[in-house]
Amino acid sequence: MPTRGLRVDVLGLGPKGELWVIECKSSRADFQSDSKWQGYLEWCDRYFWAVDIDFPTELLPAESGLIIADSYGAEIIRMPDAQKLAPARRKVMVQKFATHAARRLQALRDPGLPPELLP
C-alpha cells in the first residue's frame, strides 16, 4: 500500500483486474490542500478523481480519470490510460485487497468478530 500513514479514499478492481485508486474531492479548497495524491500513482493501474457536478474539473490533471458522482450514482466521464504495475507489486496489492475485502465481509456476517480480525 502507499507510504505508511497515507490511505486512499477508494481502492477497486477494474473489469480487467486493474487496480483503481479513486480520490474523492468535495471542493476547490479540498483539492488544492491535498499534497499527497501523487504518492498514490505508483500503487495503481488507473487513477481517478470523483467529484460532484459543480466541482471545477479544469483543476484536475487531464491524464487522470474523472468520475462525476452524486448521492444516487456515479459515471466515469474520462478513463485514464493504464499505467501497468510491476507484477510483484500487483500480486501484493491484489492479495491485500482480497484479504481486506474478506475481513470486511466476515465482519458484516459476524458483528461479534474479535477486533484483531477486523480490517
Rank of each mutant, 00 (worst) to 15 (best):
D30W: 06
D34H: 03
S26A: 12
L59F: 10
Y72T: 15
L19T: 03
P87D: 07
L117I: 06
L66G: 08
A102R: 08
I68Q: 05
A29R: 11
K91C: 06
P61G: 09
V92I: 12
E75A: 09
Y47I: 02
H100D: 13
A107P: 14
E58T: 14
P115I: 00
L85K: 04
K25R: 02
S64P: 05
L11S: 08
W49C: 01
R4V: 10
R109F: 00
R89F: 11
Y72S: 15
I53G: 12
G73A: 05
P2Q: 11
G65R: 03
L113Y: 07
R90C: 05
Y47K: 01
A74F: 04
P114H: 13
Q32A: 09
F31I: 01
S33M: 06
W49I: 04
P56K: 08
D81Q: 14
A86T: 08
I67F: 03
V51L: 02
I76A: 08
L118A: 06
S35E: 11
L85C: 09
R46I: 01
A69E: 08
Q83T: 11
F55Y: 08
A102I: 00
D54C: 03
L105I: 12
A29D: 15
P114D: 14
Q83D: 11
I68H: 05
K91G: 04
T57V: 13
R78A: 12
F31K: 03
A98W: 04
L60N: 12
V8A: 15
P56R: 07
R89Y: 06
I53S: 15
D9K: 01
V92C: 04
V21A: 10
Y47H: 06
P114N: 13
K36W: 08
A86Y: 01
P61Y: 06
R104G: 15
R89N: 08
D34A: 04
K96N: 13
K84N: 05
Y47D: 05
A82T: 14
P115S: 11
Y40G: 06
I76C: 10
Y40V: 04
G73N: 05
D70N: 15
R4I: 07
D70C: 07
Q38G: 13
D34F: 00
L60S: 13
F48K: 01
D70H: 05
M93A: 12
D54L: 03
I77R: 07
D34W: 00
T3K: 13
P119Y: 13
P15M: 02
A74L: 05
R78D: 11
R4L: 11
A50L: 05
A101H: 03
G73S: 07
F55Q: 03
I76K: 03
P119F: 11
V10Y: 10
E58V: 14
L113R: 14
R4Q: 14
R46Y: 03
R109V: 00
K91I: 01
V10F: 09
F48I: 04
D54N: 10
D9E: 04
C24T: 09
P114L: 13
L19E: 03
S27I: 00
